[in-house]
Design a protein around this nucleic acid. Structure first.
Lengths: 327, 327
DNA sequence: CCTCCAACTGGAACCGGTTACACATTTATG
DNA sequence: CATAAATGTGTAACCGGTTCCAGTTGGAGG
């Protein structure tokens, strides 16, 4: 049905090998035959079959991406960063949601390999470090780290510290840290860092648990102000939780930021359209994705970058859920 | 490097053909050899190479998905619906963002074909209906419609009408419809439908334009209340815009819903965590994705469903940005 | 006991590219 | 002007599966 290289060869009056050489700019090809081939390709609208290529070369133009859940607003930006960068380099993306389940991660890893992907970008947890290392294709972790594997991530410790410092600086005296699930490493790290920072100072610290998802957050957060009615500063584990808290604060008649200040984490797009605008710790999600893509491409091209951990800076984004200095 | 079918064959003391028959449950295989083969497969941890399969069979286990922008919160749910359903059936997803650009859509279409995808799910506009029809693999449109191509979408006319009816019913007298870009068909349809519904009644109608994205929305919306200071009801083209409007309303000292009621469109997750909760017209995004996946799979399996337009119902979700009946 | 057919199995061709190699023709070099 | 080197092109093998076909075996039926 589809046009093959031999159709082109016949039309141009040459062999398939010659067509292949022209397409790939490899080996010799006389200028005249080159023209003839290009002409035939154009006339037949020939597009080489990537599957056949992939089979012979043992490498495709495909890269696998494993994310916990594209439905979590932090990840689309990551994915987009990856994709934009990959597309430019001629690669395509196979994508899979793992829901943080080891089983699904392994399933995707397996099928990625079966499809001859040349590299894998993954947001996965510690568990299968061995499997990832034995993959014999480049792997880059994204938003996660595993000892001895290259990774792109944002500085969680700095982020946690920064959030804590800011909320102190802006005058909160009873601070509630909302801790996400401890299994999710970056989330845990930002918690630890905030906690350690606050502990060095004379303030009351509360710890409150919440899920990271929309449904989870709005449910978890309902009891927050019952439990800690006097809390006047909140460090949320992510922006979703922060917005849910802001909702709950306003619902219970608290003014933000006068009565409670709230700082989120991530800087997802929502932050700037809610009222009041959510102050947060920005992780450069898009850039992280782009960087991971860049590293993978370099590795695919054989550059033997030593296993790098690429730690990107975070940043405090001031909006209206925190007071101004001097208030 | 990797283990091939011939390695398995050697280990099991049979030919590659036999191994293939066992794997695919096709043709005969003696129970004993069957056992031996399965055993060898297990011992070697053999996973058949999908690329080789794909080449011979002229069909892969890959399905292509083209979305405008995964970063727009409406689409992740769609994508997730597609993916979950596809995974169960053993298919994997190649994904591409088009930014509504014809050029990028075509580029992805081409490369999908080059990778022997067996089906394509696409959120694209009218423009290349011909190209899509000539593809000779199944195509399903998602959230978009093109004459004579199967499609899964939500009932935009009903949605637009419903929003208009509700806001009338709840007492708004000067209603502003925020119209999105007219090139995006579903967005245009909901606008038209709202407008037609309102026009039949004695209320003042304003029309205001906005982009659909976060940045675009928060910028566009800034002048809304300058232009229409007395508007007491707003029909937004999507939830992002609605939230941005809500922000602006509160910023300018208006109470929602007492002074202005706001109804969004889509029912993305954000709606339930903002304050006040955003009333909206729900499109069943996840289900739409799942349905599209289901149709594609059926078509891939050769079921000749007549070109179906699968129109899913929308629903008014009442939260707190609208008044209660009787207020 | 012969025949026939079902049950099994392996060899080889094939999918559509790429590339090693052989061979032919120029062109460069001494 | 002979010879080496560079250029140009085709044949065939190969990537790792699948499947057609032919061949072997064993048991049922006449």
């Amino acid at each position: 049905m589809a046009i093959t290289i031999r159709d082109v060869a016949k039309k141009a009056g040459v062999s398939a090998a010659t067509v292949s050489r022209v397409i790939n700019n490899s080996g010799y090809a006389h200028e005249d035959t080159r023209k003839a081939v290009l002409d035939a390709i154009h006339k037949l609208n020939y597009k080489p079959n990537e599957v056949a290529r992939s089979l012979f070369k043992q490498k495709s133009k495909l890269i696998g991406l494993i994310l916990p859940d594209i439905t979590n607003p932090f990840f689309p930006a990551l994915a987009r960063g990856v994709e934009d960068h990959l597309r430019e380099a001629g690669y395509r993306l196979i994508i899979g949601n793992s829901d943080e389940h080891l089983e699904q991660e392994i399933d995707y890893l397996d099928t990625f390999i079966q499809h001859n992907v040349v590299g894998i970008i993954a947001s996965v947890n510690e568990a299968h470090s061995d499997m990832l290392k034995d993959l014999n294709i480049p792997v880059v972790l994204l938003d996660r780290t595993i000892e001895s594997l290259p990774a792109v991530y944002a500085d969680q410790f700095e982020g946690g510290k920064l959030a804590a410092r800011k909320i102190l600086e802006l005058g909160s005296k009873e601070i509630t840290i909302i801790r996400g699930p401890v299994e999710v490493k970056p989330v845990y790290e930002r918690f630890v860092s905030s906690f350690q920072t606050l502990r060095q100072v004379d303030v009351k610290i509360n710890i409150f648990d919440s899920k990271l998802t929309f449904q989870g957050a709005s449910k978890s957060v309902k009891t927050l102000f019952d439990k800690y009615p006097n809390t006047d500063g909140i460090l949320a584990c992510n922006d979703i939780v922060a917005v849910a808290v802001m909702n709950e604060a306003q619902r219970t008649g608290r003014r933000v930021p006068q009565d409670v200040q709230i700082i989120g984490f991530d800087d997802i797009s929502i932050c700037e359209i809610v009222y009041p605008g959510l102050s947060t710790i920005r992780q450069p999600a898009y850039e992280m994705g782009a960087k991971a893509a860049e590293i993978i491409i370099n590795k695919v091209n054989g550059e033997v970058l030593r296993d790098i951990h690429c730690k990107l800076p975070v940043q405090f984004i001031e909006r209206e859920s925190t007071r101004k200095v001097g208030d």
